Computed example of a mutant assay.
Amino acid sequence: MTQTISEDTFLAMVQPLRRELLAHCYRMVGSVHEAEDLVQETYLRAWRAFHGFESRSSVRTWMYRIATNTCLTALEGRARRPLPTGLGAPPSDPEGDLHSHPEVPWLEPVPDEVLWGRAPDDPEATVVDRESVRLAFVAALQHLTGQQRAVLVLRDVLAWHADEVAEALGLSVGAVTSTLQRARAHLQRVQQAGATPAPLPADDPRVGELLESYVEAFEHYDVDRIVSLLTADATWDMPPYTDWYVGAEDIGRLIRTQCPASGPESMRMVATRANGFPAFGMYMLGPDGVHRAFQLQHVTVTEGGVAAVTAFFDTSLFRLFGLPDELPLT
């Protein structure tokens, strides 16, 4: 039976799904900006096609089908969104030249506020699992083809049955099964190559204590202390620079030789959260005495210390995270 409803009624049915659909599109494309556009396109396609919705599946399942295929169309012919650690090059010399490539469509972080900031409008709305939007997981997904991403996310993240995935993507069940096997194997290889120790839970008191020391070390430009807070095999990357670094000592050399800070109070850090993890907007002191947006750090804290930092130099991300472009004078 076809549906005849008003636009207001339609929006009341689908609007509670926006948060989880945004997370889904973000996993697929690796950009929160693109994901927001794709969710909007999903809603437009769904409204245009709703007269043909026959209630053979739930509205949620139907919307995910549209969103997935919208993402697959958007991914056609596009390069993946990497992080520098995923480009396949060896670690860089911390005292060597930096190589910036802003033209590369880099992986973007997603603010926690976007996914979990407000209570769902629908008490039955699916809560986005933090593990499913971890930066490392989304980065690993970018190594898969669009179809592999879709199959793996629908099967392993959303727990759809193989026949549901097959119907959604226009594939046979056998094709879904083989695609899933290849996707899982490739994902496992990627994750093993860049494996870090398990992060501490957000509510572990050690996280807050370590991050407080981390912020103090940067704001005092105490490089020795920064090094002491990193794990011995910590990684550091900073898109749009293709260079990346391994090891606390090399990261310390990088900060000493490449960071424009001149001493204590050169840098200020403002806490936020990205992809379910701690993050900081870093502000650098200018010659006029004003601290301006410099980089957004996504920080992974493990039992041994800070194990990974991705410092995004795209300062347009600050507004996405609700951070100001500059800090007031103190």
Rank of each mutant, 00 (worst) to 15 (best):
Q3N: 09
A12G: 11
M13L: 10
V14G: 08
E20A: 13
L21V: 08
Y26D: 14
R27T: 01
L38E: 07
E41H: 12
E41R: 12
A46Y: 07
W47H: 13
F53I: 02
R56Q: 13
R60T: 15
W62G: 09
C71W: 06
C71T: 13
R81E: 04
R81D: 04
T85N: 04
P90G: 07
P90S: 07
G96M: 07
D97S: 15
S100T: 11
V104H: 02
L107D: 02
V110H: 05
V110G: 03
P111I: 06
W116C: 01
A119G: 01
E124M: 04
T126E: 03
T126C: 04
S132T: 02
L154I: 09
R155Y: 14
R155N: 13
A159C: 05
A159E: 14
V165I: 06
A166T: 03
A168S: 14
V176D: 14
T177W: 07
T179D: 14
T179N: 10
R182C: 09
R182G: 11
R184P: 02
V190A: 09
A193Q: 12
P197M: 08
P197T: 08
A198V: 02
P199R: 11
P205S: 11
V207F: 04
L210M: 10
V215T: 13
E216L: 00
E219Y: 07
E219R: 01
Y221R: 10
V227N: 01
T231H: 08
T235C: 07
P239V: 03
L254D: 01
A261P: 00
R268G: 08
R268E: 11
A271L: 04
T272Q: 14
T272P: 03
F277P: 00
V301E: 00
T302N: 04
T302M: 06
T310W: 06
F313Q: 11
D314T: 10
T315S: 08
S316Y: 12
P328F: 12
